[in-house]
Computed example of a mutant assay.
Amino acid sequence: MRRLMWPVVVLVLLLALNVFFTPGFFSIEVKDGHLYGSLIDILRFGAPLILVSLGMTLVIATGGIDLSVGSVVAISGALACLLISEEASLFTAVAVALGLCLALGVWNGFLVAGIGIQPIIATLILMVAGRGLAQLITDGQIITVNSPAYKVIGGGYFLTVPFGILIVVAVLAITAFLTRRLALGMLIESVGGNAEASRLAGIRSRGIIVMVYAFAALCAGVAGLMISSNVSSADGNNAGLWIELDAILAVVIGGTSLAGGRFSLGGTVLGALIIQTLTTTIYSIGVPPETTLLFKALVVTAVCLIQSPAFRAKVMRRRGRASPLNPPATAAAPSEAASTPDGVRS
């Protein structure tokens, strides 16, 4: 809980800041049987990022990184929309799209665990090739679909709640159960802490690594379905663009170390909500579009520094040295520093 304190504080401050620029920011109302409000919009539009970040958390926990999730998002939406536009059933389109994403995740895991390629290089291959594949699927065009059933995935509602939020809650609950109620989470952390030691202890580290990359790609695939269904179209060039960087930031803000080992699913969700709330805040306070990315980078940098124990300790140490109540220690007198021939101080 202590690790989550700073992300919670930052999220609360960002939400409070919006009150000054958006009257009724915290108000939630029901219209036509649907929940509406700024908070609901943050959850709804942040749902794809939360999903991608959950998969990224487990990958980073093993000491890896996945730069290809943005391209997988584009591939998933492009393939599903292509199949639906060709009169395929919703089940077929979703199953084929997620199946391809799962295969791509296994490929990433094979390159990392089986061949031994560095994760950043292995996933960079798919990051570049996957974006090209998405554009090949769409033939360089934006595919539009008119499927009410497909629209439900990212833009529909169930029991007044946006369906995308329910998907995130379900995936989060399943992930938390598998990693915190079963031994899987401990195995992932042990592989990230020391892969060789875990292998010698009898843990099949290669299988664990392949599994987390497959899970990350599957989460990205679901996020791609949500993004494309929300706008009823697929754009192979821009869908999911740079979402991998936001996902990495969300994981880091949530307290998971890039070196691997212990991870926090709750912290990741908070990190993703911080990034989405920051995006909403930027538009609320009227930050010029040309400086949006710079403003976002500065805020995220400040958040990471604030929650860094090493940075806080260094700042406090400097304050302690500069305080008049803590004058610098004087050098010991020669007589005090003298020692006897036997080496014992007199």
Rank of each mutant, 00 (worst) to 15 (best):
L35G: 11
L35A: 12
L35W: 13
L39S: 05
D41M: 06
I42A: 12
I42S: 12
I42C: 13
R44T: 14
G46H: 00
A47C: 12
A47R: 01
L49Q: 00
L49N: 08
I50H: 05
I50F: 11
L51P: 06
L51W: 04
L54T: 08
L54K: 09
M56C: 11
G63W: 04
L67K: 00
S68E: 06
S68W: 03
V69Q: 01
S71R: 06
S71N: 03
V73W: 02
V73I: 13
V73H: 03
A74H: 04
S76D: 08
G77Q: 02
L79M: 13
L79K: 04
A80C: 12
C81I: 10
L82D: 00
L83R: 00
I84N: 01
S85W: 07
E86F: 13
E87D: 14
S89L: 05
F91C: 02
T92K: 07
V96L: 03
L98W: 09
L98N: 07
C101F: 03
L104I: 13
G105Y: 05
V106S: 04
W107N: 09
L111P: 09
G114Y: 09
G114C: 06
I115L: 14
G116N: 01
I117N: 07
P119H: 04
I121K: 08
I121T: 13
L124H: 08
L124R: 02
I125D: 10
L126G: 10
V128M: 14
V128T: 14
V128E: 13
A129R: 12
G130W: 06
G130H: 10
R131E: 11
Q135W: 08
T138H: 08
I142S: 13
I142N: 15
I143V: 13
S147L: 10
A149E: 15
V152I: 12
V152D: 06
F158G: 05
L159Q: 07
V161C: 10
F163R: 11
G164M: 01
G164Q: 08
I165W: 09
I165E: 10
L166K: 08
V169D: 02
V171G: 05
I174D: 09
T175L: 15
L178H: 09
T179A: 11
